[in-house]
Simulated assay, not measured.
Amino acid sequence: MSTDDFLARFGSPGQRQPDPVAAAQQAMRNPLPKRFYEKAESLERDGLFHVALDGRTARTPARKPLAVASHAVAQALAAEWQAQKGEIDPARMPMTRLVNSALDGVADQHEAVRAEIVRYAGSDALCYRAGEPRELVERQDQIWNPLITALESRIGGRFVMAQGVVFAEQPQAVLDAVAKRVAAIPAPVALAGAHNVMTLTGSTILTLALAEGLIDAEAAWAAAHLDEDYQIGIWGQDEEAAERRVLRRKEYDAAVLLLMQG
């Protein structure tokens, strides 16, 4: 099977990323192709860094060159391809799927992607607080409030907090301030990373805090899973949920790299 045939069959074009669990399940249903190349590497050509399989540029499902402006991203892509063993498993290639999506989808729809990130800010997970128990309330305040305050200072807007599931409309001024920051995220690769970070964390606030350098990837992940971790501390975590979280984390790490380096 050629590089183009493989990418056409197993790539994931379009703006949205597949759920990592669903992707893994689909990959298990499909017969996986044998590895058909000896070496995957990053090669600089025409001002971009190409992912090359035995010297030949890989292509996206839309047959665009799998090439990016960031050397770090290209190296991560090449490492993902090189890490494939006897068979090529797309479920273990989150970076490739996300970059395919960036090049084939986000590149032509970047304004719609930006608008969706701004819309998320209108109902951001960090703006909805628990009323009880006290320990969870205090933990949300301790972890989330400094992040929100730092971002508010950076963008010049104030978010409205709510308790429980009652919807709280955000001021247009803060949404406009968010939109200005989102507009500064380069398309398509970094923007695709931002969109995936937002989806996986449920938070535009955390996404912008990462993009602005106010928080690192580990702290953002922990903040996004504060409520979940609190529940795990009380009830424990079942094996299936733990596996899903591992897959989500791999998707998240790939998205963060694109956001910060793309």
Rank of each mutant, 00 (worst) to 15 (best):
L175C: 04
A52R: 06
A224S: 15
V160N: 07
E135V: 13
A125H: 08
A112K: 06
S203W: 08
E80W: 03
L258N: 00
F36A: 06
A27Y: 01
L247I: 03
H225N: 14
Y230N: 13
K180Q: 12
D124P: 10
G157M: 03
Y230R: 13
A52V: 15
A79K: 01
E169S: 09
I185P: 08
V256N: 02
G122R: 08
E135Y: 06
H50T: 08
A177T: 04
F6G: 05
C127K: 02
M95P: 00
L98I: 07
A255F: 01
Q231M: 13
G11V: 05
A22V: 09
G156L: 00
P18V: 07
Q237E: 14
A125S: 12
A22Q: 14
F10M: 09
G47L: 04
H225D: 13
E239Y: 11
Q142Y: 10
Y37A: 00
G164R: 07
E152H: 05
L66H: 09
A74P: 07
R114P: 06
A220T: 10
V166W: 03
M1D: 06
P171F: 06
T96G: 04
G233W: 08
K85T: 07
G55T: 03
A187C: 09
N30G: 12
E218F: 03
I155F: 02
L147Q: 06
A217L: 06
A83W: 00
V113M: 01
T60G: 12
D141R: 15
K250D: 00
P133Y: 07
T60Y: 09
F6V: 11
A190R: 07
M198C: 14
N30K: 14
E218S: 10
D19L: 02
F167R: 15
D227A: 13
L98R: 08
A173H: 01
E169R: 11
Q75P: 00
W144Y: 12
E132Y: 12
R139Q: 14
E111G: 00
N145R: 15
L98P: 01
G86R: 11
V166D: 11
V189F: 01
F167C: 08
R16G: 05
L206I: 10
A219C: 10
S42T: 14
E251K: 02
R119M: 07
T149N: 12
E240H: 04
G131T: 05
L53T: 05
V113D: 03
R45T: 08
A40L: 05
I205K: 15
R59E: 13
S123R: 13
D227E: 15
E152A: 03
A209L: 10
M93W: 00
G55C: 09
L257R: 08
L191R: 02
Q261P: 00
K64M: 15
S70A: 02
W235V: 11
T96M: 05
M260T: 13
A168M: 12
R92E: 11
D141E: 12
L103Y: 04
G86V: 09
L175K: 11
A219R: 14
L32K: 12
